[in-house]
């Protein structure tokens, strides 16, 4: 298996009384941490925020998730399914699924949040306030760092380094799978240079833009 795939499943089966969006991981080796991606790279931690999830038709918002923010965690909480709930999905035939990868800057500029935004989740910088939008850690033989480790903690909500990304994906039919392709993510970044990013800056923004391009509808 060359791809680590995250599905965003849009269940529209009539049998469901409460339709749900599900973030789940379709990868057998998920049971074993670190997750082996290829000969060179493995992932020990992957968590990111998804915010403001909704579906639009034209300019109209026709569906919104119940909660504003979700913390998607495929490694520490690897067996759990990350459920994004909202009502009325069963009536939607097509539309544009939109969400923010990360925590939007308006929320980040406020005080301490609760639930997924609680600092105990380990996704809040304490030396410099603000949320880590996307956290990826692992080992790659390409990294010249100690024990070949890479730590990509991507965040930043203040100009000029706002890193959260708005993602738009067209969905049609009764079911849409939204995939995050981690193979593409790791293959197209320079881990020799960008192996330790732990503060807001140009590199974090650039990697978040790259992460945005790794989501697609299957």
């Amino acid at each position: 298996m060359q791809h680590l795939i995250f599905f965003l499943l849009v269940f529209m089966n009539i049998g469901f009384t409460s339709a749900q969006l599900k973030f789940s991981l379709a990868h057998d080796s998920l049971l074993y941490i670190p997750i082996r991606i290829n000969q060179e790279d493995s992932v020990s931690l992957l968590r990111f925020y998804i915010s403001n999830i909704h579906i639009e038709q034209g300019r109209k918002i026709i569906w919104e998730a119940h909660k504003k923010h979700y913390l998607i965690d495929f490694t520490q909480n690897r067996l759990a399914t990350n459920i994004v709930s909202g009502t009325g999905l069963e009536n939607i035939k097509k539309g544009r699924l939109k969400f923010t990868l990360g925590v939007d800057h308006k929320t980040a500029s406020q005080g301490i949040g609760e639930g997924p935004l609680d600092p105990i989740q380990g996704m809040y910088w304490t030396w410099q306030s603000g949320y880590i939008n996307f956290k990826l850690e692992g080992v790659s033989s390409k990294c010249p760092s100690r024990k070949n480790r890479f730590q990509l903690h991507l965040g930043g909500f203040q100009k000029p380094f706002r890193s959260a990304q708005i993602i738009e994906l067209q969905i049609t039919g009764t079911r849409a799978n939204v995939v995050f392709n981690i193979h593409k993510f790791l293959a197209e970044i320079n881990l020799r240079e960008a192996h330790s990013i732990m503060s807001p800056g140009e590199k974090a923004v650039s990697l978040m833009e790259h992460a945005k391009r790794c989501f697609y509808v299957q």
Partner: peptide
């Protein structure tokens, strides 16, 4: 480095 007073205490707590 801290943009909001509610987040401030986290800095010394974790340092």
């Amino acid at each position: 480095a801290t943009h909001h007073i509610e987040a401030q205490a986290l800095a010394p707590l974790h340092d």
